[in-house]
């Protein structure tokens, strides 16, 4: 899942990048409209987040440029002005959605997720097949969600969470070491703080497990890591 972010405010750019990569999305960063177009051409991202007021080319121009050759790429506008939103909605730019500044991480992720779902791209990596964990849940990587078998309840998952579950599922029955999970799900270059994985697991369990205190789907193996039985 590659997401291109075009934003001229460096702090915003950095913060959005941190939010998205924390969720397991890979990111491409552009500081202005021209860079955004170059990166879109070179990297072919799965989704584009465009700030509107940018030097060189503004978000509207970038959107028009992309739409000339790609009608289906999901485009999300980040807007600071009501007037800008009027234009996004009114001009038939072909944007999929907009998000009003100020916004928080959860709002941003939720909006990206819903745009991805609505677009024909589906969601996550469609090459990864869905898989089932112990007759409890089925994970659908392409839809960025898991479905509980007993109730049919849909649980939203981030690309990172899907990647963790997928990796553990590949080694079903084995206790997978924390370092291995990091290398696979975060990348070898990434040196996370030791608790990052645990925090991810806490959040994942809150949603995935019926009783997060006594997890059935992903178990903790003391001194080693995690395991799916």
């Amino acid at each position: 899942m590659k997401i291109l972010i075009a934003e001229d405010d460096p702090v915003s750019l950095d913060s959005i990048e941190a939010c998205l990569s924390g969720e397991g999305f890979s990111t491409l960063l552009a500081k202005n409209g021209n860079e955004a177009i170059q990166m879109w051409e070179a990297e072919k991202p799965d989704l584009v987040c465009l700030d509107i007021m940018m030097p060189e080319k503004d978000g509207f121009e970038v959107c028009r440029h992309i739409r000339e050759s790609d009608k289906s790429l999901p485009i999300l506008f980040l807007s600071a002005k009501n007037e800008e939103i009027d234009v996004v909605v009114g001009l038939e730019l072909g944007a999929d959605d907009f998000i009003r500044k100020p916004f928080g991480k959860h709002e941003l992720i939720a909006r990206i997720r819903s745009v991805l779902r609505r677009s024909d791209k589906g969601g996550g990596d469609s090459e990864i097949q869905s898989f089932r964990i112990r007759d409890l849940v089925t994970v659908y990587p392409s839809r960025l969600c898991a479905v509980r078998e007993s109730s049919g309840e849909e649980i939203e998952l981030s690309p990172r969470e899907i990647s963790i579950l997928g990796f553990l599922h590949e080694h079903v029955g084995e206790a997978v070491q924390r370092d291995q999970i990091f290398d696979h799900c975060w990348g070898i270059d990434y040196y996370p703080e030791s608790r990052t994985l645990d925090q991810h697991m806490v959040r994942l369990r809150k949603r995935l497990e019926l009783d997060p205190a006594n997890p059935e789907i992903v178990e903790t193996v003391r001194g080693v890591g995690y395991r799916i039985r």
């Binding site: 405010d9 913060s15 002005k81 100020p102 928080g104 991480k105 806490v202």
Partner: peptide, 23 residues
Amino acid sequence: HELRTPMTNILLNVDLLEDSVEE
């Protein structure tokens, strides 16, 4: 209008910080 961008940055970073603070 100008306040919206720094506001966004504050909100995003509070969220990020919350994620990395141990419970």
